[in-house]
């Protein structure tokens, strides 16, 4: 889905900025920007506030009390109901699919990116591979889902977690390689050379030198892929049918279809699924945000 070349990436690289760029919008009071920013804050926060307070209301209270006022007596029954509906299983499924796809995707992408940086100048094969990956950025997953569905059926992996993991790895590769390539390029060549002089082979240099030196990029790419796969709805919708194979987004949708009248329970299910990501956001906000702009942030 991401269709950018490596060039603009350089232009928006997240390097330390001179402090005086703050003057761009600073200086005098800017009322327009101020007003718009507070309105936007309301637009973002009100729905989130509403789902949180409603998820701890009794269903009976929900229809009788003011929806914007927190409930007098909190209840976690809604959460209990959601968990009883099998959400632990769906959570575990999401975790398996996400980790199962992100780890190989990032490792394979790193190996490919390393090879491209080290030998694309001498290897025609790697140059072709590199341009194929770049072209792959323009292929929308939604549009190629029908053959993916057929392939997964043919591999006898329909309705299995592995059947979701394998395509997720494939879909993650182009952007991961692009971003990692840009970072590995910044490792001074002399470091590779001196390690080589000491008799290390490429495999050792790859894991002992390049990998640790580009760790921030690896983390960023992993986060981006993890978030994308964790939130994926389309793949499980197409590739699974059993209830016990659902991942969280699909489970949310099914739960909502079943309990649409019980608004507090539906919202509890939403809160429960976004809680882990929000927790991560609190801990690693910078990494998450740079992960999201991975394609152009660098």
């Amino acid at each position: 889905m991401v269709t950018i070349t490596t060039e603009p990436a350089k232009a928006t690289a997240g390097r330390p900025q001179p402090a005086n760029t703050a003057r761009v919008v600073g200086g005098h009071r800017n009322w327009t920007a101020g007003v718009i920013s507070w309105i936007w804050l309301g637009i973002v926060i009100i729905p989130i506030y509403w789902i949180v307070i409603t998820s701890v209301k009794l269903q009976a209270d929900y229809y009788t009390t003011n929806p914007m006022v927190p409930p007098g007596d909190l209840t976690f029954d809604n959460y209990k109901q959601v968990i009883d509906a099998g959400f632990i299983q769906y959570f575990v499924n999401s975790l398996i699919v996400t980790l199962g796809a992100v780890i190989p995707a990032v490792l394979f992408s790193f190996m490919a990116a390393y090879a491209i940086v080290r030998s694309a100048s001498t290897s025609r094969f790697l140059r072709v591979v590199n341009s194929a990956f770049l072209m792959g950025l323009a292929i929308p997953q939604t549009a190629v889902i029908i053959p993916v569905y057929l392939i997964i059926i043919k591999l006898h992996m329909y309705d299995s977690l592995l059947g979701m993991i394998l395509p997720s790895i494939g879909f993650s590769i182009p952007l991961s390689v692009l971003v990692l390539t840009n970072f590995i390029r910044d490792v001074p060549k002399e470091l590779f050379e001196s390690m080589k002089m000491d008799g290390a082979n490429e495999w050792t240099i790859l894991w002992k030198l390049a990998f640790p030196l580009t760790r921030p990029a690896v983390v960023t790419v992993s986060i981006y892929n993890a978030l994308t796969i964790w939130n994926n709805f389309f793949l499980p919708l197409i590739l699974t049918q059993s209830i016990d194979k659902r991942t969280l987004p699909l489970a949310l949708w099914a739960f909502q279809g079943q309990y649409s009248v019980n608004v507090p329970a539906v919202l509890a299910s939403v809160v429960l699924t976004i809680l882990p990501i929000l927790a991560l956001y609190v801990v690693g906000r910078r990494q998450l945000l740079s992960g999201l702009t991975a394609g152009f942030g660098k």
Binding site: M111, S119, V144
Partner: peptide, 27 residues
């Protein structure tokens, strides 16, 4: 001496071709 580095790109290439290029032609 590092011509063999191409092999490092093979695992990524397999998944890329299997789930993006073949499907693109397949569609």
């Amino acid at each position: 001496r590092s011509g063999f580095l191409g092999w490092l790109a093979v695992p990524a290439l397999v998944f890329f071709v299997g789930f993006l290029i073949i499907p693109l032609l397949g569609v």
